[in-house]
Nucleic acid binder design. Structure first.
Lengths: 99, 99, 99, 99
DNA sequence: ACCGTGGTTAGCTTTC
DNA sequence: GAAAGCTAACCACGGT
């Protein structure tokens, strides 16, 4: 996309009026995307906070956060590995014509 | 914490029976922390997926994701900046006895 | 480092003469770092090329590159996992005072 | 390549004996490819380590790694640009019969 | 309060 | 031209 028609419609504030007044309907659409992303990121940050809180709680219960994080990482790696093995199997099978 | 009493109770599988059978109640507690973290991380990942989806949707609507991400970053910085300014303002005001 | 003494010595070409003429000896030192990095990156790129070549050779021998890459990935993950497990064990041991 | 004759010969461990005992010579060939790739990737990783080390050294000499990476990027782009210009020049020259 | 480390994300490269 | 894999920058956390 070398000369995208939507580019001129990017705007970051409302100085020229309501979003969309200038550039047409695209501004509104874009704004809606931004709002959705912003909302999702807020929720995501909240979850990150929650996770920190759990670790803090565990720490004050006498557990070592550093080790716990490692364990979690290992768990994740195991899940990943299993998933990868499954995918490989699928690949094999389709390669030899089974499905 | 040089010799934490709970450390010896870490275990990663159930070979010796239910968590806690061997090490007492701490193992159960620890396991519960792990599960809570895992659960939260799954939700967090799901949200990350959602965000990616929104960007993908925006892209197929003709917008440039790269630019959009920049805008989101700026938005975030502005919000952050405003928040800090407010805090500073509050500080000054309380310093001179206003509230 | 808020006001690093070396900053003014960054320069990317030789318009003002030999590196170091202006800023002193630091320019020469910096240039030497750049050259070393550049050399290493060239070697690295060459290896990436070699790897591509091997895959190409395997492909023309009738093997499926896609699957081969997956196998390599899995191999790598297994090695990583093992390493991670070892490190975790080390952490455990130091946590309970063994070494 | 829908039904490659070598596919059935993929195997990831040695349970059935030496690679190649079962599937013939192809297994050995494949294994050799894997080993070559693995070897090259190890060398590549080692170089990546070396590069990191150089940056670390530069950092402890008071330079800013972040800026240095930018400079390297620019250098690379310039080299690339020059190369492309040369190619274009060659093309033009051959187009008008010069060599 | 800073530094170092580790994890996440974005951009780039390469593949299909 | 889209999709995936790789690499490098960024950010946040924990430790000192």
């Amino acid at each position: 996309m070398n000369n995208p028609s939507n580019v001129s419609e990017f705007k970051s504030d409302g100085k020229e009026g309501e979003a969309g007044d200038v550039a047409g309907v695209a501004g509104k659409r874009l704004l809606s995307f931004f709002d959705r992303v912003e909302r999702l990121e807020e929720e995501k940050s909240a979850l990150a906070e929650d996770i920190k809180d759990v670790y803090a709680e565990a720490k004050s219960a006498g557990f070592e956060v550093k080790i716990m994080r490692r364990v979690m990482k290992l768990r994740k790696m195991e899940i990943e590995k299993r998933r990868e093995e499954d995918e490989l199997l699928t690949l094999y099978m389709s390669a030899i014509g089974m499905e």
